Amino acid sequence: MRGWAVIGVLLAAAPAATALAGDAACHGTIYLTFDTGSQSQADLIAAVLNKHHVKATFFLASEKTVRGDYSLDPAWAPYWQARVAEGHAFGSHTFDHVYWLKDLPGGRMRVKPQFGAQAGKAQDWSAQQYCAEIRRVDTRFVELTGRHLDPLWRAPGGKTSANTLAAAKTCGYAHAGWAPAGFSGDETSSDTWPNKVLLDKALRDLRGGDIFMAHMGIWSRKDPWAPANLDPLITGLKQKGFCFATLRDHPDYKKHP
């Protein structure tokens, strides 16, 4: 991680290529979002966002990282504190990165946590249990940063259901997915979907109002997405007249309590 720290200092110190345009100059707004993952690209993502003066929305789960710890462990407090100070937005990605499997009667659901004590084991949860899982991230985030999450959540894999959406709504969280054109493709094989292909597709297809989703590191991708694509993606979108904002300013979420 030391190498990325050096890169972060250099990029943060470099003058921004283009100042963030005012709303009047924008031809549309793109909402960049990042889900936790291996965290191999965490420092680089922060540095590129700072370089371009772009604010994003981070969706947090306590996932195993390349450091051998977990992304919501106390060791990550300085990282998240710095992102809070920069003005980014934050939502829950469920604490143990819990995948929905199927809805059950009575508002219950079958789920499978990826991490934690029940990792890999199918569980039948009530709406209250699912809500508590979403809120676990908020509790930890307050412990790490002193700040609450924004009232947003994103289901792992983007897989929602009537029961999970209803459970989250009862505890005050609105689900934030992503636009079809906003799928970065960073979970795909880099042999089948090279970074250049993914970059060209995003620059061609993204439209104003779209939510874009990428991860803070994917274990399986041999050629990581962010080092090759994030900087030119932001540069290219700015050249097309787009501005950037967090989901706090998205029309579907900014009035959410």
Rank of each mutant, 00 (worst) to 15 (best):
W4Q: 13
W4G: 11
G8K: 07
L10A: 15
L10S: 14
L11I: 12
A13L: 12
D23W: 07
D23T: 07
T29Y: 01
S40C: 11
A42K: 12
A42R: 13
A46W: 07
L49G: 01
N50A: 15
K51F: 03
H52E: 11
H52S: 11
H53A: 14
K55A: 02
A56H: 05
A56K: 04
A56E: 06
A56M: 05
P74I: 04
W80P: 05
Q81A: 08
V84C: 14
E86I: 00
G87V: 05
F90T: 01
F90M: 02
H93M: 08
T94E: 03
D96A: 14
Y99G: 06
W100H: 12
G106K: 00
G107W: 01
A122L: 01
Q123M: 09
E133M: 10
D138N: 12
F141T: 02
V142A: 12
L149V: 01
G157D: 10
K159P: 00
T160M: 09
S161D: 04
A167M: 04
C171L: 15
G172W: 14
G172S: 13
G172D: 10
A181F: 08
G182R: 08
E187Q: 03
S189P: 06
S190N: 09
S190P: 03
D191P: 02
T192E: 15
T192P: 08
N195V: 06
L199Q: 06
G209H: 06
D210N: 11
I218N: 04
W219N: 12
W225T: 04
W225L: 13
A228F: 13
N229D: 11
L230E: 07
P232N: 05
L233N: 06
I234S: 03
T235D: 10
D249Y: 06
H250T: 01
D252E: 03
D252H: 13
K254R: 15
K255G: 15
K255L: 10
P257V: 05
